[in-house]
Simulated scan of single mutants.
Amino acid sequence: MTITTAEAIEILGTIAFAISGSFAAMQKRLDPFGVLIIAFVTSIGGGTVRDLLLGDTPVAWMRDVNYCLLILVTSLLTIFFKKNIKRFKVTLFIFDSLGLGLFTMLGLQKGINFGLDPGMCVALGTITGCFGGIIRDTLLNAIPLIFRQEIYATACILGGVLYFGLLEMNMKPDFAKVSVIGFIFLLRIVVVRYKLALPKFGY
């Protein structure tokens, strides 16, 4: 069976966010059931909000149980191999950044498939990439990354703008998708490495 680029991105994104959610839950010392729940909402949260906004129901994970099984297996493997991974925080960051790029691209493509204008597609990409992490952090009693100084949602927006720019330059869609995913991933690494941040407001 041939897997399309969109399917490959969705599978990889689901795995990345399932690992991200699992590590975030293990940092909070949740039991295995808690780890599974956090992994699940991290993986499907953004896509669920996106599909509900589009009226595309039942939402994607309810139409294909394989994604639920993928999250389950990924979570169990993450729990099993946790002793071999010393730096939870670094691992969480890497997979969260990778999932952000992959799911942003999924949201962009879904908006295009629904015939929406580029601005709405970028918004959907940002929602798809960010909302799973928002739900995860809220359940774990942490301030979501999107609401902190870190460049998180901004990375999704810039990636979306880049994607449409690459298409305007007649780059092949598959190459443009890979470029945008890599851009968002690398941007997150550079931002954290050099401690770049948006200005903070408040008293």
Rank of each mutant, 00 (worst) to 15 (best):
M1W: 09
A6L: 15
A6K: 11
I9P: 08
E10W: 02
I11V: 15
G13H: 04
T14A: 02
F17W: 05
A18G: 03
I19H: 03
G21D: 03
G21C: 07
S22L: 06
A25T: 09
M26G: 04
M26K: 01
Q27R: 15
R29K: 15
L30C: 06
G34H: 03
G34P: 11
V35R: 02
V35C: 13
F40Q: 03
F40V: 05
T42H: 00
T42K: 00
T42I: 06
I44W: 04
G45R: 00
G45Y: 04
G46S: 05
G46T: 04
V49R: 00
R50H: 07
D51N: 01
L54D: 09
G55L: 07
D56T: 10
D56C: 02
D64Q: 01
N66I: 05
L69P: 05
L69E: 10
L70D: 07
T74S: 10
L76N: 05
L76K: 02
T78W: 07
F81M: 10
F81C: 12
K89H: 13
K89M: 12
V90F: 13
L92C: 08
F95K: 00
S97E: 08
T104C: 15
K110I: 09
L116T: 08
L116W: 07
P118G: 01
A123M: 15
G125D: 07
T126Q: 04
T128P: 12
T128I: 08
G129R: 01
C130P: 07
F131R: 01
G132I: 11
G133K: 01
I134L: 14
I135W: 07
R136Q: 08
D137P: 11
N141A: 15
I143D: 09
P144H: 00
I146M: 08
F147L: 14
Y152C: 09
I157L: 13
G160L: 01
Y163L: 10
F164Y: 14
P173Y: 02
A176T: 07
V178K: 01
S179F: 10
Y194V: 06
L196W: 15
A197K: 13
A197D: 12
A197C: 09
F201A: 10
G202L: 04
Y203M: 11
Y203V: 12
